[in-house]
Structure formats: C-alpha cells, structure tokens
C-alpha cells in the first residue's frame, strides 16, 4: 500500500481583499494524492486551483481544514519556516511557476541560481555544487554555455526548464507545476511535460500539475480533480473524467475545447 503524499481534508482558504470584503478562494476541498502519482488540478480562473497548490507548498496559510504532506501537517511546517534546520526538512515541496519570465532573478545566471540551491540543499563544496548544477541543467537540455547567460537572453521554454532544474536540485518529494506550459510556444510545450514526467520515473517524484488546458492534463496525469469557484466539482481517474464526465461543468469545459476535428498526423 503506497503512502499518501498529499492528504487534504476539508480545506478552506479565505482571503481579505484590499477592498475589505472576504473572498473564499477554496471551500471545503478534500483530496488525496498517492506517492509517485501524477495528479491534475483543472479549473478556470477563480476556481481556486492556484491557491490550493500554494497551500500544499506552504506559501499560503489555510483558514480551515487539514493538509498533510507525507504525514506532516503543513501548518506545523509553516510556523517553523523561519528556523533553518526545520526548513531543510519541511520544504520538500517545490514549484514550477506559470510565468517563466518572473521565475528567475534577472541578475543571476541559471548556473549561479542552481549552484546556490545545490550548495544549500546538498551541502556540497563550491566546485562540486557548480558541477552538479551544470549537470542538472544539461539534463533539462540547457548547455553549460547557455547556462552562463543572464535570463534576459533565454526563451520562455528555456526559462521554464531552468526553473525545473532548480526545483529538482532541491531534491523535493513533491513537485507542483502551476500552468507550466501556458506561457510557452506550442512547439516547446511537449518537451517540458516530458521532462516533468521523466522526473517522476527517475526519482519517484509525486507531481501535481495545475492547468486550464485539459489536453495537458490528459497527457500527463492519471488522477485529477476539476475545480470551480473554490470547490471540487469532480474527482477521479483522468481517463474516465475526460471521456465520461459526470459533472455538467466538466462537460461544458470539454465541449469548449477547440480543434477536435482533425486527426493526428499518421
């Protein structure tokens, strides 16, 4: 019986907007992700999908409910965020973000950024860290030469791959990809997804992919939830949901997807 990587029980998140009224971003959400699984979270804007995964990462505080990452309560880890020793254990969730252009400090080259992570997380010497970082970047297809250019000169797809290398260099147990392909040209999207899936296979990583694009979820995940207005509207096996959805909302989403007429090229 595999362990539960993520166990969310009746999670609610409420924000106070700058105008003073309350926004219920997440309402009574419960879900489970098995270790080593690739899990999808689908929703449109305002569905709460990004807030949900930020709670998993420990970036956002839950208002109500319980979230456990490999048995550890996320709230406990959050409070210890400030203390170094605990931090190293608690932050076993890493993220790849939607906007590749603000994912990297413009003043650090990819090599510098990843080297720093390796040094902190793997406690290697400066030279070994650099070598390990260069290797990690090669694995995602960024040559050592390119990794020494400032982010300004890299394309969206390359930046996203650097973000992935940085996240993986921290040896996470769970990787969250928040709309990883939305800001990238179509001809490069499949590559990012392939790298993400490769990481599951090679490292036994658990991956949570957030996307509004049902095709992305269909290609990568085995289980998924559909969110609307902060609630889970449908949950289950990806194949099932995408071919025989039970919720009317899911049905509407599927019907709105363009371009289902042409066949794939043989």
């Amino acid at each position: 019986m595999t362990e539960l990587a993520v166990e969310v029980t009746d999670l609610s998140v409420r924000f106070k907007s700058s105008r003073g009224h309350f926004v219920d971003a997440v309402r009574h959400v419960s879900l489970e992700v098995q270790a080593g699984e690739v899990f999808g979270v689908v929703g449109e804007s305002g569905s709460g999908k990004s807030t949900l995964v930020r709670v998993l990462a420990g970036l956002v505080k839950p208002t109500d409910g319980k979230v456990q990452i490999f048995g550890h309560d996320v709230n406990e880890s959050r409070r210890l965020f400030g203390r170094r020793s605990q931090r190293l254990n608690a932050s076993n969730v890493q993220m790849v973000f939607q906007d590749p252009y603000s994912s990297l400090n413009p003043y650090l080259t990819p090599l510098q950024a990843v080297t720093e992570v390796v040094r902190i997380r793997q406690r290697l010497s400066r030279r070994d860290s650099r070598e390990a970082a260069a290797a990690a970047l090669e694995e995602v297809g960024i040559s050592k030469a390119r990794a020494q250019h400032k982010p300004l000169s890299l394309s969206g797809g390359q930046l996203q791959r650097v973000s992935l290398a940085r996240a993986l260099a921290a040896n996470p147990e769970i990787l969250i990809a928040d709309e990883p392909t939305s800001a990238i040209d179509q001809s490069m999207q499949a590559r990012i997804l392939e790298l993400l899936l490769g990481a599951t296979r090679d490292r036994g990583l658990t991956i949570v992919i957030v996307s509004h694009d049902l095709a992305v979820i269909g290609h990568t995940t085995s289980k998924m939830v559909v969110m609307k207005a902060g609630e889970v509207v449908e949950a289950g096996a990806t194949d099932e949901i995408l071919t025989r959805p039970s919720a009317a909302y899911t049905q509407r989403l599927l019907e709105a997807v363009p371009g289902r007429r042409s066949r794939p090229l043989g």
Binding site: Q94, D99, N105, A167
Partner: peptide, 21 residues
C-alpha cells in the same frame, strides 16, 4: 514575485532573500 516564492520554497531565510533577491 515567482523567484522570491521559489527562494522561500528552497528554504532561504528572509535576510538571505532580501540580500540576494
């Protein structure tokens, strides 16, 4: 901004985040 959130996830202390990012 995303690279600061990434730094938090990576376990950077706030003083380090301030100086570096």
């Amino acid at each position: 901004i995303e690279y600061v959130e990434a730094a938090r996830l990576l376990g950077y202390s706030w003083p380090r985040i301030l100086v570096r990012h």
